[in-house]
Each structure stands twice: as structure tokens, then as C-alpha cells.
Deep mutational scan, measured.
Amino acid sequence: GVRVRALYDYDGQEQDELSFKAGDELTKLGEEDEQGWCRGRLDSGQLGLYPANYVEAI
């Protein structure tokens, strides 16, 4: 996976979405899909989806 850092807070709206705060680091686990979602893993171990444009590569 690729380490990325959140640029903005994001509150997951669905069960399969991650929630994070600006500045949090997570691991991107795949390329974004056509809707702009990426699969990732928080350092807590939680897996889920997040909007790709909310993070930057570290």
C-alpha cells in the first residue's frame, strides 16, 4: 500500500466508509475507481472506502 495523508476531515456516511481527520495518515490499498473512491486501511486496522481527493501521497 501507499501512505497518504488526509487533507480534510471526512465522516464516513456508510458502513463501508472510513472516517478520518485532516492530518491523519492511512494506507491506500488500490487505485481509485471511476467514482473517485479508494480502498484504504487506517492505522487502527479498519478497512474501508474514502474519497480519493481528500488525501495526498506522503
Results as ranks from 00 to 15, higher is better:
residue 39 R to C: 12
residue 9 D to Q: 05
residue 56 E to C: 09
residue 14 E to Q: 08
residue 42 L to I: 05
residue 14 E to H: 15
residue 35 Q to V: 05
residue 15 Q to T: 08
residue 56 E to R: 11
residue 15 Q to V: 12
residue 26 L to D: 00
residue 31 E to W: 06
residue 44 S to R: 05
residue 50 Y to A: 03
residue 7 L to H: 04
residue 13 Q to P: 05
residue 45 G to I: 00
residue 58 I to W: 04
residue 20 F to T: 02
residue 5 R to F: 04
residue 42 L to G: 04
residue 26 L to Q: 02
residue 44 S to T: 13
residue 55 V to T: 15
residue 57 A to G: 13
residue 28 K to F: 14
residue 53 N to C: 14
residue 26 L to S: 02
residue 33 D to Y: 07
residue 34 E to D: 11
residue 21 K to H: 14
residue 27 T to M: 05
residue 18 L to I: 11
residue 24 D to C: 14
residue 49 L to P: 03
residue 27 T to R: 05
residue 40 G to M: 01
residue 30 G to D: 13
residue 8 Y to L: 08
residue 14 E to T: 10
residue 34 E to L: 10
residue 50 Y to M: 10
residue 52 A to T: 13
residue 2 V to M: 15
residue 29 L to C: 12
residue 18 L to G: 01
residue 43 D to Q: 09
residue 30 G to H: 05
residue 54 Y to I: 11
residue 51 P to V: 03
residue 40 G to V: 01
residue 54 Y to P: 01
residue 58 I to R: 02
residue 9 D to R: 07
residue 15 Q to N: 10
residue 1 G to W: 07
residue 8 Y to K: 15
residue 12 G to K: 15
residue 58 I to A: 14
residue 55 V to C: 13
residue 3 R to Q: 07
residue 7 L to T: 10
residue 19 S to D: 05
residue 10 Y to T: 02
residue 13 Q to N: 11
residue 44 S to L: 03
residue 56 E to Y: 05
residue 36 G to L: 04
residue 48 G to E: 00
residue 37 W to K: 11
residue 34 E to R: 12
residue 49 L to V: 14
residue 53 N to I: 04
residue 29 L to H: 05
residue 47 L to C: 14
residue 53 N to S: 12
residue 13 Q to D: 06
residue 9 D to W: 00
residue 21 K to T: 08
residue 28 K to M: 15
residue 21 K to V: 11
residue 33 D to I: 05
residue 28 K to Q: 10
residue 33 D to F: 06
residue 50 Y to L: 14
residue 36 G to F: 04
residue 48 G to K: 01
residue 23 G to Q: 04
residue 37 W to R: 15
residue 47 L to A: 13
residue 12 G to Q: 08
residue 3 R to Y: 02
residue 18 L to R: 01
residue 17 E to S: 12
residue 52 A to L: 04
residue 49 L to R: 14
residue 23 G to P: 00
residue 4 V to A: 03
residue 10 Y to I: 01
residue 35 Q to R: 13
residue 54 Y to H: 11
residue 17 E to I: 12
residue 43 D to A: 12
residue 24 D to F: 02
residue 3 R to V: 04
residue 55 V to F: 07
residue 55 V to W: 00
